[in-house]
Design a protein around this nucleic acid. Sequence first.
RNA 1: GGGCCAUUAGCUCAGGUGGUUAGAGCGCACGCCUGAUAAGCGUGAGGUCCGAGGUUCAACUCCUCGAUGGCCCA
Length: 1127
Amino acid sequence: MHSRNAGAGVAREDSRGGGQGGTKSHRTRARCGGGALMPVTKPPYATLPADLSANALEEQMLARWRDEQIVDKALALGADGSRPSWVFYDGPPTANGRPGIHHVLARTVKDLFCRYRVMKGYHVPRKAGWDTHGLPVEIEVEKALKLDGKQGIEAYGIEEFNKQCRDSVWKYREEWERLVERVAHWQDYKHPYVTYENNYIESEWWALKTLFDKGLLYRGHKILPYCSRCGTSLSSHEVAQGYDEVEDPSVFIALDLQNEDGPGTRRRILVWTTTPWTLVSNAALAVHPDLVYVEVQKKTGRDWTLILAESRADAVLGAGWEERWDVMHRHRGAELAGKKYHRPLDWAEYPDGHHEIIVAEEFVSADDGSGVVHMSPAFGADDYAAGQRHTLAFLQPVNARGEFPPEMPVIGGKFFKDADPLIIEELKKRDVLWKAGTVKHQYPFCWRCDTPLLYYARTSWFVRTTAYADDMMKRNTAVSWTPPETGSGRFGEWLKNNIDWAVSRDRYWGTPLPVWQCDADETHRMAIGSFDELSKAAGKPLGAKFDPHKPYIDADEWSWKCTVCAKGTMRRVSEVIDAWFDSGAMSFAQWHYPFENVDRVTQEFPADYIAEGVDQTRGWFYSLLAIATGLGDALPNNAAGSASPYRHVVVHDLVRDAKGQKMSKSRGNSVNPWEVMERHGADATRLFLVASSQMWVPKNFDETVIREGASRFLITLRNLYQGAFAQYANFGWSPSAKDPNPADRPLLDQWVLSRLASVEQAADQHLDAFDATGAARAVMQFIDDDVSKWYVRLAKRRFYDLESDDSRAAFATLHEVLTVSCRLLAPFAPFLTDWMHRELTGGDSVHFVDYVRNQSAAGRGQSAVGIGQSAVGNAALDAAMAEIRALASAGRAARETAKVNVRQPLSKLVCVTGPIDAAARALIEPLVPILAAELNVKVVEFATSADALVSLEAKANFRALGKVFGKETPLAAAAVNALGADTLAAFERGEPVLVNVEGREHRLTVDDLTIVRKASGAFVVHQEGILFAAIDPTVTPALRAEGIARELVSRTQRLRKETGLEVSDRIILRIAGPALVTGAAETHRQWIAGEVLARSIEITESMASATNVVTVELDDLTAQLALSKDS
RNA sequence: GGGCCAUUAGCUCAGGUGGUUAGAGCGCACGCCUGAUAAGCGUGAGGUCCGAGGUUCAACUCCUCGAUGGCCCA
């Protein structure tokens, strides 16, 4: 377990080729062992050379992981039931496109929470999946084969076409799998589910049959954008490409209401449309239920009234219409609903269903037209939906080529768009035309041939999701969404407006819809729920090469005599199903349920966690929920009213380019993930994607930000390991019983361990709550700010020794900090943390240890080294150190103001702390030496009110005063701020102090104000909020001498380095200069010699004759230094 | 046309339940260190908090309307 040689494949030899590494060894050993070389009892911590790129390091880790088959091990962890399960479902990507940088985000999000849960002691099943059917695949193949639309495909041959599709799906599989491995997405890619495979399809057939038998799968109509030239429907993204601004007719017609009360005044209703050709198929009029409609009568002619929305009267009747028209009635839209009218054109006979009726619909707009909308259910989605709701008659007098029937009067045989002028003419003749003009608006055209598209009702198969929409909404409320508003808003709103799901496609490459119907009477229908059922129905074995895809499944061999009428033949309907149904069925189809693995699905349904992009809201998030809810108790743990198929969803947004532009092929701003890996590595990329901003806001992919953020952070982490820890520990420290207990270590160590414990807890809580950004930021900030900027900087010299308790404490502390930090960062940066953790612990992969030290879950093997110590934060110590650090910062600023280098010692610092509690105050005293050393002052004092240096000022607390004074708060605050120092001193002693504002008297409480101590006098003061640091800038001769001595040491050290001396070389030093310099050198001779390893120091007034003389400037003084190696 | 999100320093982002002088990192300027050096550290300058109204003693924060960008849907 602790063999230090185990697999540490990275750069064991020192990169600096035996230079400093070796000599430091001399030096250090000389210091601790009086010059005797001590045998190295343990192989060293591997070095992490700075010139080893992140990419190279990660590639080496990948090789090691491959050797260890670590992914398999991770997947198997706890599979024997020894751990509780935490199930992840993978939303399947299509592999017929190159993986892009946005996939790296998706993979990172999926991976990191799973990785975290493994470390938390769970078994995390996560089967990869591939989405292999559907239109994108077909389009890809169409393009490759240069086929033109459906006719082209059929001419080419469906068998061969589908074969091409099947191959096309795997075009980039190899690259996908390489990238997935490269970014450390640990998932079961060896046993993926593939939606085109027979087992998968059979499970879907089972699901579709289950829905069919429940009456939830039916044939109906769907309005689709349709190109009459190409003879095909267009998908939404195709339509989006073809919008153009056009001028269309804008026609108002006035239709007579049917007079249900017998003869009387003629009442007319004003209707607006931009598609006169659809008036032929008019079935209803729609009004908004809450809108006010006026019924007006012309003052000059009393024989009829006109109804329209009041808010539209100005626009339609003209400004000042009230002078020309009398308002006879006002109706709410809801009151008009149900009234009948006469349609404008009667060329088509109504089939069954309501017609010529006014209905109330929410979608009616009060912003244009007359507030009354004409409804033609075959030619508009809103119209169609309204038609369904009100069972309106369905007229579709336009054929698939976009033409009216030849026998129709006036417009017979005309293309639909060409009928508009003829119809307007006809309306005029019939005296229903009110007004005809034109309007400019966006209209879709076929992107291939520029034909205006037709919203056209097509036959389609539906899942009756409206029958169980309430159940879906109820299940959704139990889902925990990140961010929550996506669940309640985007997805919740969508569910509220849920309509039946059109699941069929008139295409070729997809799961065939398993419905067979009789060619003599199509109401004789059945669904086939398994291949076995098919075999029995058809009366023949499947055969070894059975393929349920088109065209095979539509061949004669899979048809049979209708068992109902015995006349017709049962044949499969021609449609395939929506690829979203494929992916939405994965919760059970990935395991070939219910034909196999019933126990498994029983255990692993529903999922604990899924994660996808926002674009999946209407996609996979919906299809998973819709299928599972529809199936109900046909799935385990899934009766009506139970949970959603997923318990927690993390939704991430898109990745855009550095300027916030969407990435696209046409813009040429797509980012190649491989180049990013090469330049920055997966760790930095993952860390950037997670930490730079919350993942649910669109992310601008900016490599500069990676470099300056995530990469810089990882370099700091590497340096802490290599430069602060390993290079010194390698001289002979390793964790042992000789290390002092944490409670016996210096306060600085206790502090950093306390911070570590707090950060550990924070990261754990954040990840538990699915806040990866919060977790990553907390750990990064700790490493950067607390460990690098403060702990290591202050503790540095303690690593130059090995044996003292002080040094052992420092090593043990830093070792603990680094080891635990690796664990906390492992979900984000899995490569470097694993490398480092193995070195630190003697071989344990970071991915198999507990995420936090006091984890309560069932015990698993983990390193005991350095771990298991107290992991509880000490808030008082944290607060005290924060205060010391704030004072140090203020003190440094004061020194800058005073223009005195930190190297120059000063006598005194006087400071005032902020409001901290008694426990923290007690802890400040022992930390004062840190402050003194940091600011290089001899004495640190804390000022009291009695000090002459200090004056008191009051700062009003508006929050407290506001409650008492209300409107007069500003006056009260001014009165408080004006209180004099004496009054405030009295207040501090507990004497009552009153403020009087506008006759209202109030006795101040401690909450009402904060007392600020201000410095005055000759000191240089820096104030930071309510704390301040005042420094005595006086440089006495003695202090000056000390400062000069420090300067001399600093210059000498630099000189040693420039001269090429090894750090352990002894020297003879000669110093010359003015009396101030020589005097200082004399006074501090001993100390200087110790610092620069000088055997002797010669101090003279001048040394013109010496060789190697260097002149140095010490502020306003000039001195000369000469050194030679003492051999 | 509808829904959701975003808009705070040059860049990336923080800013419970409204409360005094709006914070951090990077970048920039200046400086320190030279035994983490293809590193490390400090100090400082940067903001009409997208705009307009409103509520309130008090608005980055709450409300209304609008602008810009993004996604989804019609």
